[in-house]
Design a protein around this nucleic acid. Structure first.
Lengths: 198, 198
DNA sequence: GAAGTATCTGAATATCAGCTCACAATAGTG
DNA sequence: CACTATTGTGAGCTGATATTCAGATACTTC
């Protein structure tokens, strides 16, 4: 299912913006509830209380809807927020903040997130953006590691990638299995801080 | 897409067995190449050089094909093989063997594995088997941790789940990004052994 | 308030994949 | 070789979903 199409009409009246928003909102709910394949455009339109025609006035196809949700998530989800605001805290605190933020993020809407990460049809363009975002986060993390006095690992690049992915993926998986968040947080922080202190 | 159907005919001649195998083989390739949704039954049949009718003589539906691939993978993939054969090695060695095995496993066919883990349509029955398998692995790991003298963690249950998932998921992800296997192995082992030794 | 533009509608269409079934070919048996 | 059982075939049926389009409705502007 490719996805190139001439651009859709851009909203010029307020009501159009509202319609667009309703569609995106409905899509988030429908995808969450039904998954991507079973989340049909008709269901989305119905939920948004909009005709199917309207939906296609703002999105060239179904893929584009999920793609936009992913993008929104990326750039509201702290593309700019640094990993830690105060770099002079002790290592464990920094790690705890990092872990907690990820856990909180997942608590909000785990199913939609899972969908985005795993089922999203990745157009080359979207893929590029996601990769760029991911690199940015890893670079930030690497910087924190490089700067912090308590850190004692040699392969900084690998360490940053390892940590970023570990926290993200494990949180995902275990939160889905309804592990108690506090225990997860503690154990992750323990693992990472012992690792980094060498 | 549910999946209950009267059982298909069982092969009684050699040629039938061969056909069945060809179908499974082809399915593995097709799913790997196209993903689950775009891996159509017709494509699979074509690749297996078998008519679509034959395919449906051995599998009640598309889901069942992937389900069988998952099952095969599970019980050839060391459901019985213990995590470590010689329990008197030092901790780092034990961990290294564990990590290496996972990495080797993924080298074989990362995309298919990813598919199985993420896109497989999980019938309740299949889900049960997968969960049972997963619990078994975690229990084994927990036993190793509980037994080994070098291990110093309090929350053994959480630790076992954390480690199992970390190794599995991170290997998955990073091997897909073509990280160098040796570096990954080293860093994972470093992280885990420092963590466990406290 | 009339003309022009933007927005919305939803029945109709296009597409496409899973799957069936009536029949054909091949293997086994005596 | 005749007869049965097993296996194989593939055109086409079925149902589901994405997407279109001709026309209705609502806003904006002068």
């Amino acid at each position: 299912m490719p996805s190139e199409k001439p651009a859709r009409r851009k909203p010029r009246q307020v009501r159009a913006e509202l319609t667009r928003d309703r569609i995106l909102n409905a899509a988030a709910h429908i995808f969450t509830e039904y998954g991507y394949a079973a989340g049909t455009t008709n269901r989305i339109a119905e939920r948004a209380r909009v005709s199917i025609g309207s939906l296609y006035q703002y999105f060239p196809n179904k893929d584009a809807i999920l793609a936009e949700l992913v993008l929104n998530h990326i750039d509201e989800g702290g593309a700019d927020t640094p990993i830690t605001d105060s770099p002079d805290r002790d290592l464990e605190t920094v790690l705890r903040l990092f872990v907690r933020k990820t856990i909180d993020n997942h608590r909000a809407d785990p199913r939609l997130l899972r969908l985005m990460l795993e089922e999203a049809p990745l157009s080359p363009d979207l893929l590029t953006k996601i990769i760029r975002y991911s690199h940015k986060r890893i670079a930030q993390l690497k910087h924190v590691l490089a700067t912090h006095p308590e850190v004692r690992v040699t392969d900084l690049d690998m360490a940053a990638r390892l940590i970023e992915n570990t926290v993200e993926l494990v949180t995902h998986k275990l939160m889905a299995e309804s592990v108690e968040a506090q225990r997860l947080e503690n154990e992750l922080v323990a693992m990472l801080s012992r690792y980094l202190r060498g």
